[in-house]
Write a protein that binds this DNA or RNA. Structure first.
Length: 300
DNA sequence: TGCCGACGGTAGTGGCCTTC
DNA sequence: GAAGGCCACTACCGTCGGCA
């Protein structure tokens, strides 16, 4: 894991310095796949009982079991991964996602292979996989939304009028900020796309809605949120099945009464969120559609 | 000025409880 | 039994203050 850790730190450093680190992310994935293929067992775990049933696999090694993953979306073969990356890059370069299946497979594989390695060999490191997801998608966005027309940040300053201006030294304004994962701002129109990036939302689903509510209040009509996740699954070791942890009722309430998100974007879309009664309230689609939707909003 | 530890906020996950 | 929600736990990360 030392090599993977070192590569990850280098990728994060580049990303924090506003430099895309896609090549570094691919390199990390190659290292992860090699380690998983040689030092772990990739095997069937169980099914999610839905309509249809979905098969999930896990990585087993070092006395640990990884989170469940969808084998048909995960490219474990290195040569196949290299071919998929070429297709992914071509679609990125052309600004045209013509093969969404391969596009989403690459995203799923890059993020999941890193997650599986951490689950097996560094299970106590909870936050790192989420940070890697952010670095990868952030790097994609840095290429797709280049400066100076677009600006990428992680915070949106909220400037509030202070009722008693005399109580403040400069006598004017006091600031705070909304801390998000990724914000892309069109520097001409000042419109912004907020992209909360989560491997899974669980009970933190309220966060993007709360952020959008604050932004609607502070800057009406200026920001839209695009919640982007990998999946919503949890192992059930007792029954060796996989559960999709969904909260459709809560999301519906938030969407109706708290604030409106522009969409939920998944690699592995939870079946409950794909149902017509739910998608009538909020757009739920694959990650491949994320960029076109943001393009429409940012007038790219 | 730079190092280092404390601290708080945030993120991810398993397990358990309640409700239907 | 499934869905939905809460809790506990661990770790990362940025900030701040103390200290040399």
């Amino acid at each position: 894991m030392q090599t993977i850790d070192r590569l990850f730190q280098a990728a994060k450093q580049r990303y924090d310095a506003s430099q895309p680190s896609l090549a570094e992310c691919y390199e990390i994935t190659r290292a992860c796949l090699t380690k998983l293929n040689t030092e772990a067992t990739l095997r069937r775990f169980g099914e999610f009982r839905g309509a249809p049933n979905l098969e999930y696999w896990v990585a087993e090694g070092n006395g640990n079991l990884s989170r469940p993953y969808r084998p048909e979306m995960f490219i474990s073969d290195l040569a196949e991964f290299e071919r998929a990356v070429v297709s992914f890059q071509d679609q990125m370069d052309d600004d045209d996602i013509t093969d969404p299946v391969t596009f989403e497979k690459v995203v799923y594989t890059v993020v999941s292979s890193f997650c599986l390695c951490y689950d097996v060999w560094k299970p106590k490191s909870r936050k790192t996989p989420g940070t890697f997801f952010e670095v990868f998608i952030g790097s994609v966005c840095q290429i797709r939304y280049p400066q100076p027309r677009f600006q990428m940040t992680k915070h949106i300053p909220i400037v509030v009028e202070v009722p008693d201006a005399d109580a403040v030294d400069d006598g004017a304004l006091q600031g705070n900020s909304v801390s998000t994962d990724l914000v892309i701002t069109n520097t001409v129109t000042q419109q912004g796309a907020v992209i909360p990036l989560k491997i899974t939302t669980r009970e933190r689903i309220v966060q993007p809605f709360a952020h959008q509510r604050i932004l609607d209040s502070a800057y009406p009509g200026r920001y839209r949120s695009y919640l982007t996740c990998i999946s919503e699954v949890q192992r059930d070791d007792k029954t060796t099945t996989v559960k999709q942890i969904c909260v459709p009722g809560t999301v519906a309430l938030f969407q109706k009464h708290l604030s409106e998100l522009s969409g939920l974007y998944y690699c592995d879309i939870p079946q409950r969120y794909a149902r017509q009664d739910f998608t009538a309230l909020i757009r739920v689609t694959g990650i491949a559609n994320l960029f076109d939707d943001i393009d429409d909003w940012l007038n790219r």
